[in-house]
Design a protein around this nucleic acid. Structure first.
Length: 474
RNA sequence: GGCCCCAUCGUCUAGUGGCCUAGGACACCACCCUCUCAAGGUGGCGGCACGGGUUCGAAUCCCGUUGGGGCUGCCA
């Protein structure tokens, strides 16, 4: 362990690399991060990679990348780690031996099947402490179990208050597997002690583990940390978000064009509300204001619609330059509707204020102005048919082409004024008159403001498309 | 089954005994604005799970019921 870089409280985030990085984990990480920062403390990242069957090294990098995306990274002085739990196996075993020596733990040679069989025979559930007084020594296949004392274990929790557990109902849980490897309950505590963790802020699903861990802390001669169990995130069925069932991968949202700031802001509001009149808040403010005591006690539904609304808000707050920079990955991806060589920054920047309010995600931008950078617009057949079903449409298209050919100044204002006049001549309001031109030039009936788009497209290309359309409907 | 946690509009929440005729946001609906679509503006719909207490007074405190969730592994 490195020497701590700060002297304040020590928080930690301890994910296991068994899959994509979970949005629920992200919120827990964010809350720990805010606390470590505002209290002048440290955020320790520890990768709990002791489940050999399920761990994959690539998930570890995924966690680190995802954390970096939401602003939690090693370049910050409050960050420490990552540590890998698997590197500390010796300490875990040493702690287990200490517990055995002190009589707080004992060996048991019953297999899981043995326990099940005996329970079935006796009509019980769980492990009944059968090997407690058999005086078994360490041996192959023998597990080390914690000797749960009599009495009550009370957990002082910053969000739950005092929670009391009757020890009689806590079975003698396993510390070391039959193969000698440490289990989560033990490893987690030993690491927290080794890393001088003072505050354990984690999801509520760990609350039932806490009395067990607190007993280990004490048996090992340490004062337990400050506990805080925050509510879980749930899906529409109100079940805990699951990697199997639900769309929980932070990486996926990033790739779909959700902004980091929007995700962070949304996640923070799940179970907590920023001070002030708006729930849209800047990170420094949220970081300063966040308090565990203010956290809601009940589970929160991860609502995609609200996330999308937050994302739209954040996209609209961007300057054109920021917006362009943020959209680049999608503008130049293999899935972009146009090729990179046809893209024109100046045109995009000019249209940005009109693109932004039409985007839910950054990925949407390309689709909104694809016609600007395509050799030919992609024609929506239904839109075309509907628009040119009206006989005046063809006439308006011809007349406006003629009028635009002789337009002295090619700008949005002049283009609009001209089409207004052309439309009037055919007894059409601008709303109707613009439709054929829009379909001819953009291929669709919906899209950003037409005249600004025509200006950006340029006279030659605009007129070319209008003539192509004229020929097609003739 | 046992243990534990939780309970305000559909959703996220404000609310810590009188400022509550319960406030905001998202979603939804209507209207306005408008070159289409958005965005924006205005308005609307909609909630303290239920039953008992305590109190002059309860969304707020207590008890119970009901409902939901978590845990109950030689996973983490």
């Amino acid at each position: 362990m490195d020497s701590p870089r700060t002297t304040g409280p020590r928080y930690r985030f301890a994910p296991s690399p068994t899959g994509f990085f979970h949005v629920g984990g992200a919120r827990t990480a964010l809350w720990n991060w805010a606390l470590a920062h505002s209290e002048g403390g440290t955020f320790v990242l520890r990768i709990e990679d002791t489940d050999e069957a399920r761990n994959q090294p690539e998930w570890t990098q995924g966690i680190i990348d995802a954390l970096a995306w939401i602003g939690i990274g090693a370049d910050d002085p409050h960050f420490e780690g990552p540590y890998f739990q698997s590197h500390y196996a010796e300490q875990h075993v040493a702690a287990a031996q200490q517990l055995f020596a002190s009589g707080d733990a004992y060996y048991c040679d019953m297999t899981a099947a043995d326990v099940e069989a005996r329970n079935k025979a006796e009509g019980n559930q769980g492990y009944q402490g059968w090997s407690r007084d058999r005086g078994l020594e360490h041996g192959p296949g023998r597990v080390l179990r914690f000797r749960v004392p009599e009495g009550t274990t009370t957990v002082h929790d910053l969000v739950r208050g005092e929670v009391a557990f009757d020890n009689v109902l806590i079975e003698d849980f396993v510390l070391l597997r039959g193969n000698g490897s440490p289990m989560f309950l033990l490893a987690n505590v030993v690491d927290d002690q080794a890393m001088a963790i003072t505050h354990v802020v984690r999801a509520e699903e760990h609350l039932p583990n806490t009395p067990k861990q607190q007993m280990i802390w004490r048996a090992l001669g340490h004062q337990p940390p400050v506990w805080a169990h925050v509510p879980v995130l749930v899906n529409e069925q109100r079940k805990k978000l699951s990697k199997r069932r639900d769309k929980v991968a932070l990486e996926m949202y990033r790739d779909e064009g959700y902004m980091s700031a929007a995700m962070v802001n949304y996640l923070m509001t799940l179970g907590w509300t920023p001070k002030g009149e708006s729930e849209i808040a800047e990170w420094p403010q949220m970081q300063a204001d966040f308090r565990l005591e203010d956290v809601n006690h009940s589970p929160a539904f991860f609502d995609l619609k609200k996330l999308a609304a937050f994302n739209g808000e954040y996209i609209r707050m961007l300057t054109p330059e920021q917006f362009l920079a943020a959209c680049r990955p999608w503008l130049f991806s293999d899935n972009a509707p146009f090729t990179a060589d046809r893209f024109d920054e100046a045109k995009f920047l000019a249209m940005a204020p009109h693109i932004q309010p039409r985007c839910v995600t950054l990925a949407d931008a390309a689709g909104v102005i694809d016609f600007l950078f395509l050799a030919d617009p992609v024609i929506d057949r239904a839109a075309w048919a509907k628009t040119f079903a009206a006989p005046e449409s063809v006439a308006v298209l011809r007349a406006s082409t003629a009028a635009y050919e002789v337009l002295p100044l090619w700008n949005a204002e002049a283009l609009k004024a001209t089409l207004e006049i052309t439309g009037e001549a055919h007894g059409l309001k601008l709303g109707k008159a613009q439709a054929p031109v829009r379909v001819a030039v953009t291929g669709r009936t919906v899209g950003p403001p037409l005249f600004e788009a025509l200006e950006a497209l340029g006279r030659d290309e605009s007129l070319r498309r209008m003539r192509v359309a004229e020929a097609a409907v003739a």
